[in-house]
Amino acid sequence: MLIVRLWVVALLGWAGGVHAHVLSADDRVSPHFGWSFEPWVVALLVASGGLYAVGYLRLRRRSRRSRNVRAVHLASFACGWLALTIALDSPLDALAAALFSAHMVQHEMLMLVAAPLLVIGRPLAVWIWAFPATMRGGIARAVRTRWLRMPWRVLTMPLAAWLLHAAVLWGWHAPVFFEAALARRGIHTLQHASFLIGALLFWWTVFGNTSRGAHGAHALLSLFTTMVHTGALGALLTLAPGLWYPSYIESTSALGFDPLQDQQLGGLVMWVPGGLAYVIGGLALGARWLARRAPSPSAIRVDIDGASVRGTAAQDG
């Protein structure tokens, strides 16, 4: 499964980066917006969706057990796939190059909508079933090697994933790096890919990594602390007295918006809706804990019946 895990991270990260849109000089004066349909992005999205569909159908035919759970996973993956498509191929991508606030919406969709939904969809376990049986055996043998297993274990350690996600977020919003991403397509590609890959690893430690038997306290701690530091970054952007990213002045003014107000709106997007996403994640995690700890009705009946039998026996004695 590890090679599939590494492949999904690379696949989605590449899809998140190959079409990082940067406005040309003409576009900054008179921006044009529309669906982009970058061939590489479309190809990767179609490949990921097709593999999931094939794997899901094979698993569904193989066993009738847990069909409801698989249906939930399918719905989650489909919604995450759709969010990824909207973030990368819709007019939002072109608008993000002209407005900082739209750029923040795009980043939040990648990190707080697409990434957690894709993780909940369990694509790693489903995709492997899309391959022929002979290839599945080869993949299983390959993932047992320490050269593949150890890097994955390190990257998905809660602290490592948290630090990577935080470093990516704060580092890319430093003016020097954000401005470089706006000016150069290759750096913009790296920015989008690192946002998505870091978010996938982070949300994996929250919703996907159940193999280590962790009780989940680290997941709530990760969500809370991430909400705090991302909220702090959003507040800094919102309350800043001056512009952090002068490259947006021309394009924002061409659309009739005040550049500083656009920056403040982008900060609010990260601060409020972004923080709400982590709260929702924490509530979902708490609901899952309660569902696991709640006794089943049959167990309750057994306990009641047992108590009744013991009480009757005591009276008879």
Rank of each mutant, 00 (worst) to 15 (best):
R153A: 15
S308R: 12
Y278H: 11
W244G: 03
A114N: 03
G275M: 04
A254Y: 03
I304E: 09
L88K: 00
W14M: 10
W129T: 05
L243C: 08
L239D: 10
L163C: 15
L260G: 07
L236M: 15
G186H: 07
L6P: 00
V206S: 00
V18L: 10
G266C: 08
G50P: 05
L112K: 14
L221E: 11
A235C: 05
A174V: 15
V46C: 11
W289Y: 09
W271T: 01
S296E: 05
A15L: 14
L124R: 14
L51S: 12
V143W: 13
G49C: 13
H192G: 03
R288G: 06
G55I: 06
F178S: 01
A294L: 08
F100S: 01
G171S: 07
G137Q: 05
V126G: 02
A87R: 01
L268E: 12
P132Q: 08
V176K: 01
I197P: 09
L283E: 02
G234Q: 08
L110E: 03
S251E: 03
L110I: 02
M157Q: 11
R301W: 05
R141S: 15
A214N: 08
P273A: 14
F178T: 03
V302R: 09
V176C: 04
W203S: 01
W7H: 07
A114Y: 04
R122S: 06
V228Q: 06
A240E: 11
R146A: 06
G137M: 04
L112Q: 13
G242Y: 13
S48K: 08
W127P: 10
E108D: 04
L117H: 00
L6T: 01
F257W: 15
A96Y: 00
V206E: 00
D27R: 09
E108N: 05
V302W: 04
W35V: 05
T312K: 09
W14I: 10
L44V: 13
A214G: 13
H165Y: 15
A10C: 05
T230P: 02
M109R: 03
W170A: 03
A167T: 14
L221I: 11
R184C: 08
M227C: 12
W271E: 04
P175S: 11
G256L: 08
R288I: 01
V29R: 15
A313N: 10
P241R: 09
A313Y: 09
D258Y: 08
Q264P: 01
D305W: 10
E250T: 15
P175W: 11
V272D: 06
R153I: 07
L59A: 04
A102I: 01
R184G: 00
F37E: 04
A299E: 12
M111C: 02
G234N: 07
L190M: 05
G80M: 04
N68R: 12
T85E: 01
L88D: 05
H19V: 05
Q315H: 13
A87Y: 04
A287Y: 02
H229G: 00
V8N: 04
W127A: 09
G256V: 07
H103K: 02
T230F: 14
Q106T: 01
T226F: 10
G13A: 06
T312S: 13
N209M: 07
R185V: 13
S253T: 15
G231H: 12
G80Y: 06
A97L: 01
A96E: 01
M104T: 02
L112C: 09
H32A: 11
L268Y: 12
L88C: 07
Q264V: 00
T205L: 05
L82D: 06
G198Y: 01
L221S: 10
Q315M: 14
F131D: 04
D89L: 15
L110K: 00
